[in-house]
Amino acid sequence: MAERFTKSMARNIYLGGSTFFILLFLGLTFDTMQAMPERDNRENLTESVANGKLLWEENNCLGCHTLFGEGAYFAPELGNVYQRRSMGNDEAFIGYFKAWMNAMPTNVPGRRQMPQFNLNDQELEDLAAFLKYANGINTNDWPPNVEG
């Protein structure tokens, strides 16, 4: 770099630039938090959903699946699984979900295996409620299609 460009100029760009963008980021975060109530489906965040989220976490579901595209890429996206499997019917979704969870693992030789998590009926319903709630969050029309 040319000698005209001194170390103290570089330092000032660093200090000024990072301070400015940290403050801008905080401002944008504040604005986002104002917008979130309209988008994050919090009106449907019931106790059952909260418990479902805890079950989701304590069984490390994200270790294989993605949720809104985040997680591991070993098993299907579940942020929209309610849309994919419910046909718009809660009863059908819960029935499907329970049957699925209870049938695991398939033990088909050579195929990817999902563990048996030994959840009871209430826990399965909570987990299903959590997945339905997640499906209701406004993700800007992601994923592109129902397959996730």
Partner: peptide, 9 residues
Amino acid sequence: HFFWIGPPE
């Protein structure tokens, strides 16, 4: 990272 997880467009 905020494109598809809930925050505004």
